[in-house]
Simulated assay, not measured.
Amino acid sequence: MTSVRLRGLLPTLPTRRTRTPPPPAAPGEVVAEALGVRIERGGRVVLDGVGIAMRAGEVLALVGPNGAGKSTLLAALAADLAPSSGEVRIAGRPAHGWAAGELALRRAVLPQDAALSFPFAVADVVRMGRAPWAGTEREGEDEEAVAEAMAATEVGAFAERPFSALSGGERARVALARVLAQRTGLLLLDEPTAALDLRHQELVLRVCRERAAAGDAVVVVLHDLGLAAAHADRVGVLHDGRVAVEGPPSEVLEEELLSRVYRQPVEVFPHPRTGVPLVVPRRTEADRHLPA
């Protein structure tokens, strides 16, 4: 499918340049924040008074056990889920105060599941990330942004293949490329490494680091504590709907806290070469000889 046909299927946006692209944030500037956010879903409190900030030039990893509220917090930070109390602010303004088109110029979201109902080609899926920039002075960057995003995620080799024909890991990388092509100053990524092999897990987290080095704020939900320790500037550990602790990995990833939060004894020790914390389950010799 050509880009012309694709554009006809995307939401109609103004053709006149009536929207001004947001200026880049200064290093360390708070790009988005949750202030006392409480969210209830299905009669259960999922987030209870959560406060956390995202800063330009940093990778913030959200970790915690299943059901801790990581994805819910990410959805709230994206303004896709309204809190029952508290507030989310993006670029200094309450998130609900931004029109959808303006919000899409300021944050890009990668959900856990990448699904499409139509057999779009990979290149056209990535090009969808440029839709918010139609009618702005930066719409001329479309092809450059798409090519750069596809190269960064190594999906160019199957640019013409239907998205529906890809493996789970390939779809995950194409979905990330769409987010990168959007070129916003805030990236919100929900488990971007879950379906990936070892090489591409590292590739994705390197891309996150590169975007942070270029001045973006990157928030990534991770289950792998080793990846969080190696690539994040700050880690927020969620537990029972609250941020149990938040700070640099070397300070946050501590044995007693993680053992309690995950209800699994762990050991934390420095990598022999880099000093980055390594987190592994605590095992005994007897564990190796348990009956199958």
Rank of each mutant, 00 (worst) to 15 (best):
R107T: 08
A108S: 14
A75P: 00
E256D: 15
V59F: 05
R19V: 15
A149Q: 07
A108F: 01
G129R: 03
A91R: 10
A244W: 04
G215N: 06
F269H: 06
M1S: 05
G64P: 01
A181G: 11
T2E: 11
R173I: 05
L81Q: 03
L253R: 01
G43E: 11
G185T: 03
Q264D: 03
T284Y: 12
R38A: 14
V59A: 05
A214K: 03
R16S: 14
P14C: 05
L227M: 13
A61G: 11
L10E: 03
N66T: 10
P111A: 14
E141C: 02
T18E: 15
V219Q: 00
F120A: 02
R283A: 15
P248D: 13
L225D: 00
E141K: 02
G215V: 04
A181Y: 01
P65D: 07
A175Q: 11
G8I: 02
V179T: 13
P111Q: 07
V268F: 10
W133Y: 07
R127D: 12
V155N: 02
V279F: 14
L203N: 08
H231Y: 15
L176S: 06
L6F: 08
A115G: 00
G169H: 06
V220K: 00
P281H: 15
R282E: 14
E246S: 14
A217N: 08
H231L: 09
E246R: 07
Q201K: 11
S164M: 12
A26V: 12
I90V: 15
P248H: 09
A32P: 00
R41C: 05
E254D: 15
L205F: 05
E256P: 00
G226N: 15
G168S: 03
L257R: 15
H271M: 06
R260N: 12
L238N: 02
S71I: 04
L238Y: 10
L47P: 03
R234D: 11
L258G: 07
E210P: 06
A32S: 14
R38S: 14
T136L: 13
V218H: 05
V235W: 06
P270F: 12
E160L: 11
L103E: 09
